[in-house]
Protein backbone atom coordinates (compact mmCIF):
# COMPACT_ATOMS: atom_id res chain seq x y z
CA UNK A 1 0.00 0.00 0.00
CA UNK A 2 2.62 2.44 1.16
CA UNK A 3 4.86 1.40 -1.70
CA UNK A 4 2.04 2.05 -4.18
CA UNK A 5 1.44 5.53 -2.74
CA UNK A 6 5.13 6.32 -3.01
CA UNK A 7 5.19 5.04 -6.59
CA UNK A 8 2.20 7.11 -7.65
CA UNK A 9 3.62 10.20 -5.90
CA UNK A 10 6.83 9.75 -7.84
CA UNK A 11 4.81 9.38 -11.03
CA UNK A 12 2.87 12.56 -10.30
CA UNK A 13 6.08 14.41 -9.53
CA UNK A 14 7.67 13.20 -12.75
CA UNK A 15 4.59 14.16 -14.76
CA UNK A 16 4.40 17.60 -13.25
CA UNK A 17 8.09 18.07 -13.99
CA UNK A 18 7.34 17.44 -17.65
CA UNK A 19 4.48 19.89 -17.44
CA UNK A 20 6.67 22.52 -15.84
CA UNK A 21 9.22 22.06 -18.61
CA UNK A 22 6.51 22.57 -21.19
CA UNK A 23 5.29 25.68 -19.38
CA UNK A 24 8.82 27.02 -19.19
CA UNK A 25 9.42 26.37 -22.87
CA UNK A 26 6.14 28.05 -23.78
CA UNK A 27 6.89 31.07 -21.61
CA UNK A 28 10.38 31.35 -23.07
CA UNK A 29 9.09 31.57 -26.63
CA UNK A 30 5.97 33.57 -25.85
CA UNK A 31 7.50 36.26 -23.67
CA UNK A 32 10.56 36.73 -25.84
CA UNK A 33 8.22 36.94 -28.82
CA UNK A 34 6.33 39.75 -27.16
CA UNK A 35 9.63 41.39 -26.23
CA UNK A 36 10.93 41.23 -29.78
CA UNK A 37 7.61 42.50 -31.08
CA UNK A 38 7.59 45.49 -28.74
CA UNK A 39 11.18 46.30 -29.61
CA UNK A 40 10.61 46.01 -33.36
CA UNK A 41 7.40 48.03 -33.22
CA UNK A 42 9.10 51.37 -32.70
CA UNK A 43 12.08 50.61 -34.92
CA UNK A 44 9.85 49.28 -37.69
CA UNK A 45 7.60 52.31 -37.87
CA UNK A 46 10.57 54.67 -37.81
CA UNK A 47 12.21 52.53 -40.48
CA UNK A 48 9.20 52.75 -42.78
CA UNK A 49 9.18 56.52 -42.30
CA UNK A 50 12.87 56.80 -43.06
CA UNK A 51 12.57 54.61 -46.16
CA UNK A 52 9.70 56.73 -47.42
CA UNK A 53 11.99 59.76 -47.23
CA UNK A 54 15.07 58.11 -48.66
CA UNK A 55 14.94 54.77 -50.42
CA UNK A 56 18.67 54.19 -50.07
CA UNK A 57 18.24 53.71 -46.34
CA UNK A 58 16.35 50.44 -46.87
CA UNK A 59 19.34 48.19 -46.22
CA UNK A 60 20.37 50.04 -43.10
CA UNK A 61 16.90 50.20 -41.56
CA UNK A 62 16.29 46.53 -42.38
CA UNK A 63 19.30 45.71 -40.24
CA UNK A 64 18.15 47.98 -37.43
CA UNK A 65 14.70 46.44 -37.55
CA UNK A 66 15.84 42.84 -37.28
CA UNK A 67 18.35 43.40 -34.48
CA UNK A 68 15.85 42.70 -31.65
CA UNK A 69 14.80 39.51 -33.41
CA UNK A 70 17.70 37.81 -31.68
CA UNK A 71 15.70 37.98 -28.44
CA UNK A 72 13.04 35.60 -29.69
CA UNK A 73 15.66 33.32 -31.24
CA UNK A 74 17.25 33.04 -27.80
CA UNK A 75 13.82 32.23 -26.40
CA UNK A 76 13.33 29.54 -29.01
CA UNK A 77 16.76 28.09 -28.27
CA UNK A 78 16.03 28.04 -24.55
CA UNK A 79 12.73 26.28 -25.25
CA UNK A 80 14.40 23.72 -27.48
CA UNK A 81 17.10 23.05 -24.91
CA UNK A 82 14.48 22.72 -22.15
CA UNK A 83 12.39 20.34 -24.17
CA UNK A 84 14.88 18.17 -25.98
CA UNK A 85 18.21 18.29 -24.16
Amino acid sequence: MAAEVVASTVEIAAASQVGMKALGAGLAVGLTGIGAGVAEMGIGSAAVGATAENKDLFGLVLILTVIPETIVIFGLVVALVLWFV
Binding site: T70, I73, F74, L76, V77, L80
Partner: peptide, 16 residues
Amino acid sequence: ISHVLSYARLVAVGLS
Protein backbone atom coordinates in the same frame (compact mmCIF):
# COMPACT_ATOMS: atom_id res chain seq x y z
CA ILE B 1 28.35 36.10 -26.98
CA SER B 2 25.11 37.39 -28.48
CA HIS B 3 26.51 37.43 -32.02
CA VAL B 4 27.77 33.87 -31.79
CA LEU B 5 24.56 32.63 -30.20
CA SER B 6 22.63 34.48 -32.88
CA TYR B 7 23.68 31.76 -35.31
CA ALA B 8 21.44 29.39 -33.35
CA ARG B 9 18.70 30.78 -35.58
CA LEU B 10 20.03 28.54 -38.34
CA VAL B 11 18.66 25.65 -36.30
CA ALA B 12 15.81 27.33 -34.49
CA VAL B 13 14.08 28.82 -37.52
CA GLY B 14 14.61 25.59 -39.45
CA LEU B 15 13.16 23.48 -36.66
CA SER B 16 10.09 25.69 -36.42
